[in-house]
Amino acid sequence: MRFGRLVAFAAMIFTTLFASFSTHSADTFVFTAIPDQDESRLKERFDKVAAYLSDALDVPVKYIPVKSYPAAVTAFRNNQVQLAWFGGLSGVQARNAVEGSRAIAQGAEDPLFETYFIAHSSTGLKASDSFPGGIAGMTFTFGSKGSTSGRLMPEFHIRENLGKSPDEAFEKVGFSGDHSKTIALVQSGAYQVGAVNFQVWKKELEAGIVDPAKVSVIWQTPPYPDYQWSIRGDVDERWSEGFTEKVTQALVDMKDPDLLASFPRTAFIPASNSDFQPIEDTAKALKLID
């Protein structure tokens, strides 16, 4: 009996063993994406994007999942990925860390991205066109610490309008970790006010996760540039002359709505490093980068 179990176990091990030795080609072009929403389906959907890119570029392409913004930046910096779908701030961090790297494409929506300030109904705050000064002294949650829409831009506007750091301006300040949690925490009243990526808000509102009677948008920030594809500077050398252009073209040519839904964007348009200068300046002003 015991021997039988042992044999079964050994058989199981060997099958898995062979599975894990599957081909791992030396010059695979690898990319990643910051896990800002819908993480659970990210791998499935980005594997499709990898297949598309592989076809278009004629080199093996692989997607590897990461768990956090800094992990995506680190992987880019360590040359474990050569291309990444970053947020505004993480893109600036990554390109500053890798000489010669470039922002090559962004979503059609990204030049005009927004952050929504949302509040629990019990605060009595109503939607307004100007910054809601009434949030001072309440409890407030950002999203992830490294997020542009969930942290950088809202903090900038808070400092600008309240003249204080978030720690001083609010009774308590939290970092929920991601946009969905920000919504859940404000909806339950755990935090009174929060800052959230406007796209995630719209999506959750449509999906019926948001209860408009409990939580609502009280202010939207002026638009700013956010997400983008960034590529390392040494890929032309490693793959072929003009590889960067080919990747840019492949991204801009991506028309399949199913693929674009992974981001979610309606189309990709070309981008350049200078498009994100406002983000870099803001991050410097907030001393988030040197």
């Binding site: 896990p35 929403q37 819908d38 993480e39 659970s40 999942p65 990461v66 768990k67 956090s68 992990a71 970790g177 991601d178 969905s180 949690k181 859940a184 996760i209």
Partner: peptide
């Protein structure tokens, strides 16, 4: 797994974070 190892925590953090 919470910080990226492909273990149970990886999926747990994701599922929990998204309210699944």
């Amino acid at each position: 797994g919470f910080i990226g190892l492909p273990t149970l925590g990886f999926h747990l953090e994701t599922a929990f974070g998204e309210g699944l």
